[in-house]
């Protein structure tokens, strides 16, 4: 078990966020078959019914679909994937901005700090 869940929040919601992350960053490929509930429950060390609930919710949101005979698949709707990516990023940035404002940082100071840190934490992007 490599993933740590926060016991204070519903685990199915954390699973949805985690699975969505995997889809938007490409580690789960669009159109691929999703692992079985049992495999996912084992991989993430959580209850199978909790996994089932997360997957059902993702199906409702269109991020996955079920084919009656062959199982559950990741959406091939690139627009939806990119919208979800945008939405996840905005949520994280909102949280981040709140935290930075809590530290009393202004916009310009924060932008400078990000530019300086970006190169250190992500070598490939140093010259961008």
């Amino acid at each position: 078990m490599s993933y740590e869940f926060d016991n204070h929040a519903p685990i199915y919601l954390q699973l949805i966020e985690l699975f969505n992350q995997k889809i938007v960053n490409g580690s789960w490929t669009a159109g691929d078959r999703v692992a079985s509930v049992r495999e996912l429950a084992l991989e993430f060390g959580v209850n199978p019914n909790t996994v089932q609930r997360a997957l059902a919710e993702m199906e409702r949101e269109g991020m996955m679909y079920t084919e009656r005979t062959s199982g559950r698949f990741i959406t091939q709707d690139q627009q939806l994937i990119s919208d979800t990516r945008q939405q996840l990023a905005e949520e994280k940035i909102d949280q981040f901005i709140n935290q930075m404002q809590g530290l009393g940082l202004g916009r310009d100071e924060l932008k400078q700090l990000i530019d300086r840190k970006w190169g250190k934490n992500n070598g490939a992007d140093r010259n961008q």
């Binding site: 016991n7 204070h8 519903p10 685990i11 959580v46 209850n47 019914n49 909790t50």
Partner: peptide, 27 residues
């Protein structure tokens, strides 16, 4: 252990104190 439960039953003094789905209780 709680992440593997889908339901929690809390027992105190031999009586049922609380019963519910874990994610619902967390929420």
């Amino acid at each position: 252990v709680e992440k593997i439960f889908d339901e929690a039953v809390l027992l105190g003094f031999g009586q049922l104190v609380m019963q519910g789905e874990t994610d619902q209780l967390r929420q």
